[in-house]
Design a protein around this nucleic acid. Structure first.
Length: 243
RNA sequence: GUUAUGAGGUACAAG
């Protein structure tokens, strides 16, 4: 069975999930029982090729036979469903997971919260966020950044800043992605001065801007017609790159 | 011994 699992994994890496499924069928016929790793590997492979629906079906079929998944397997499925924006199914699976005594973790919540934010369903995301805290699961920088990013893309900057402060208040350090999201949010509203202020705060906090940070600022400044400012940022970037 | 140095967050452009 270990051999089978390794072979299936090879198929997945080669993006040949059908070969993996073939092996799986062959071995099942010979009376072997697939285990958690077999199913997880197949599910992951299917999701990687965008065949999320097949992955869910496989999982359901195995579940009928008494198979029990773990948080990781549920995580793979939820990840797949979130990527294709099947949030109804993702939420349902998340609920089922809990019912089956498989506790959700920060990753499963994170994937769902992020996907809801991307769909502009911030309020639903916040419900999940509160539910998570209620269960004693601590949101991390990724969860907060997802919310902040979601709020920023809707232009709800006040709220975004509130979550930022709440996060810092909890002792969670904002990272590069968090700052990039905030800077981008302010830029989108044309508030490039505030964006620059946040940029400076980030640098003071010891976080080095990356190419994305500079792209956000330069893009925004150019679109605002502040080409002079933009070239200053560009120069700064080049100078920093040489340090 | 296997999925597993494992699953989650940010820009522009392209499509």
């Amino acid at each position: 069975l270990f051999t089978l699992n390794i072979l299936i994994n090879c198929c997945c890496h080669l993006r040949k999930i059908n070969c993996g499924l073939g092996l799986f069928g062959e071995v099942m016929k010979r009376g072997f029982e697939a285990d958690l790793v077999t199913i997880s590997t197949l599910v992951k492979g299917l999701c990687a090729e965008g065949k999320v629906v097949d992955a869910v079906q496989l999982f359901d079929k195995m579940s009928e036979r008494g198979f029990r998944g773990d948080v990781f397997l549920y995580g793979f499925l939820i990840n797949g469903l979130c990527k294709i924006r099947e949030m109804g199914f993702a939420l349902e699976l998340h609920r089922k997971m809990t019912e089956r005594n498989c506790e959700a973790n920060v990753h499963t919540y994170s994937m769902i919260i992020d996907a809801l934010c991307k769909d502009g369903l911030i309020d639903d995301a916040v419900v999940l966020f509160l539910e998570m805290i209620g269960k004693g699961i601590c949101p991390d920088v990724v969860v907060y950044s997802s919310l902040i990013n979601g709020l920023c893309s809707l232009g709800r900057l006040r709220k975004a800043v509130r979550y930022f402060d709440e996060m810092v208040g909890r002792g969670i350090k904002a990272d590069l992605v968090t700052f990039n999201s905030l800077i981008h949010g302010f830029c989108q509203e044309g508030l490039w001065k505030d964006a620059t202020r946040i940029f400076n705060r980030m640098v003071k906090g010891g976080i080095s801007p990356d190419v994305i940070t500079y792209t956000i600022l330069i893009d925004c400044l150019c679109k605002e017609g502040k080409v002079g400012e933009a070239s200053k940022v560009l120069e700064l970037m080049i100078k920093k790159g040489k340090e």
